[in-house]
């Protein structure tokens, strides 16, 4: 058995994207019982600097397709390279990060190979399927997150999935393998460059909610951008990061990069404190595995309380200033 992983680099840091590491670890976990192989593929002009991490999570081989013009993302050229490589390696499964790049190149490949592709999987496992032997079961939220669907593509090879960053947990245990990198030069004539890249525009630095132990999150109930300052003050007092619901993002209270949930970041902090968030299914999809959940909401029937450990039924504008005061007193002795 063999699983192939599309490896991506953060162009700003030159390091691996977290999702690439998470997928390598997941693939190893899938392949280990069958003595299967985990193979990474990176297309670009320069490998990420820290590829050793991939091997420490159980990758067997990393294949690098090298050409200086591939520093830009020419999706069709990427597709042509990956397709050839998939035909050569003949993997059972191919995993992509559900990144802007992965979500463009994976459907191109699935179309030309006529194979099944399941987007935004939250669980992957291998099991028997009728007379087809072992296949990949792909679980994903559907219908706006109100149901979980298990998708299979039993008749075509390879089965392909995309997975969002942060969804697959990194295991504690590492499985160090010997580093093995195979590099191939690409003849540009084989590619298909139709795009001219005129300009690269920097984006504001992304907040990385996954790196914090404590997250303070606000929703529509916070009411305004000004009120959100209260959350930032509390976060400062606790050394926490601030996130929010999609309603908070859509209302312009906070930046999109701080959205938590099915279509935002998936977080698992030790402590999650929410203010004015009702607790929709889509929001919970991004935070319900937090260690401890605290909710402040004016509505005692808000579903967020169903998954909370502690709660207060009160206006957040009243609660936060008192919290900050007690916190400061307590922390300072």
């Amino acid at each position: 058995m063999k699983t192939l992983i599309f490896i991506e680099k953060n162009p700003l840091s030159g390091l691996l994207r977290d999702v690439s590491v998470e997928l390598s670890a997941k693939a190893f976990q899938l392949m280990e019982p069958y003595n299967g192989e985990v193979v990474g593929i990176f297309t670009g002009d320069k490998l990420p600097e820290n590829t050793d991490i991939l091997f420490s999570y159980g990758m067997d081989r990393l294949i690098h397709y090298n050409n200086s013009s591939l520093s830009n993302f020419y999706s069709v050229a990427y597709k042509n390279i990956l397709e050839k490589m998939i035909l050569k390696e003949d993997p059972d499964f191919v995993l992509f990060g559900a990144t802007n790049m992965g979500r463009e190149v994976a459907p191109l490949i699935s179309s030309s190979l006529q194979t099944g592709l399941t987007a935004d999987c939250t669980q992957l496992y291998i099991d028997d399927f009728k007379n087809n032997g072992k296949i990949l079961y792909q679980v994903r939220p559907a219908f706006g997150g109100n149901i979980l669907a298990t998708i299979v593509s039993p008749d075509q090879r390879p089965a392909m999935s995309t997975v969002r960053e942060g969804v697959m947990r990194l295991p504690e245990k590492q499985n160090k393998k010997k580093e093995k990198i195979e590099s191939f030069d690409i003849v540009p004539e084989d590619l298909w460059f139709k795009d001219e890249f005129l300009e690269i525009l920097k984006k504001e630095k992304k907040v990385n909610l996954n790196k914090s132990n404590i997250i303070i999150a606000g929703g529509a109930g916070v009411g305004s951008k000004e009120n959100f300052k209260l959350l930032f003050d509390l976060a400062e007092a606790l050394g926490a990061e601030v996130g929010g619901s999609r309603a908070a993002v859509d209302s312009g209270f906070i930046d999109k990069s701080r959205q938590i949930g099915q279509t935002g970041a998936v977080v698992r902090p030790k402590l999650y404190i929410s203010f004015g968030i009702s607790g929709s299914i889509q929001h919970r999809a991004g935070m319900e595995e937090s260690g401890k959940i605290i909710a402040v909401n004016t509505d005692v029937n808000a579903p967020i309380f169903d998954i909370s450990h502690f709660g207060i039924v009160e206006d957040m504008k009243v609660v936060i200033p008192v919290m900050i005061r007690y916190l400061k007193e307590d922390i300072n002795g």
Binding site: Q114, T115, G116, I147, A149, I151, V300, I307, F310, G311
Partner: peptide
């Protein structure tokens, strides 16, 4: 013509926590 098939669907079950509500006062 669809390689992917829905094997099963499940509605999302809300797991109840052991919630402790504090008084809404100081």
């Amino acid at each position: 013509g669809s390689p992917t098939k829905v094997h099963k669907i499940k509605s999302i079950v809300l797991k109840g926590g052991d919630l402790k509500i504090f008084e809404n006062n100081k």
